[in-house]
Amino acid sequence: MNNAAENLEHVVERYRQYLVLLADRQLNSRLRGKLDASDVVQQTLLEAHQNHEQFRGAHEAEMVAWLRKILANNMLDAIRGLRREKRDVDREQSIEAAIEQSSVRMEGWLAVEQSRPSQQLARQEETLQLADTMAGLPEAQREALILKNGHGWTVTEIAQHMGRSSTAVAGLLKRGLKQLRQQLIESE
């Protein structure tokens, strides 16, 4: 491995959890159980690594834009893949609609990523820090926080989905927020 590739890999890795959060938010929440955003991000980082010579930019902002483009492409492919799979297995209507809706949305996202000039992430350090810290939370706390804040679910919806009481979900959110605060403050 040459130096440029090694360096790129190092820089790219910093964005992993940010990309996972981003991809997850783009995903229709009914498809979250069928498609794991972190798998698509893993594949995206692998491709970025393999095709590093295609990256011509000089700045980190350009690299992030490049990563987001690959990610948007891969998410679209993954959702189209679900559509093919679903056609054979079952034709659950709400899922079909969710897949349809999601692929339209991914096409929109991809178009944005392709037409947008690369720019610095808004408050880059805070964003990356939050994404990394969220990734370290216990699974149930992270799931509750993502559904609440990333997907806008109500506590009742989360409770039904997770098979817990509303007060238990409030407890998860409370403990998750507390842990995030402790770690975010610590690293400041």
Binding site: L21, R25, Q26, S29, R30, G108, L121, A131, W153, T154
Partner: peptide, 13 residues
Amino acid sequence: ALEMTNIVAERDT
């Protein structure tokens, strides 16, 4: 800060 980068977000519950 994350919301600002999430430009095509949609509420889809």
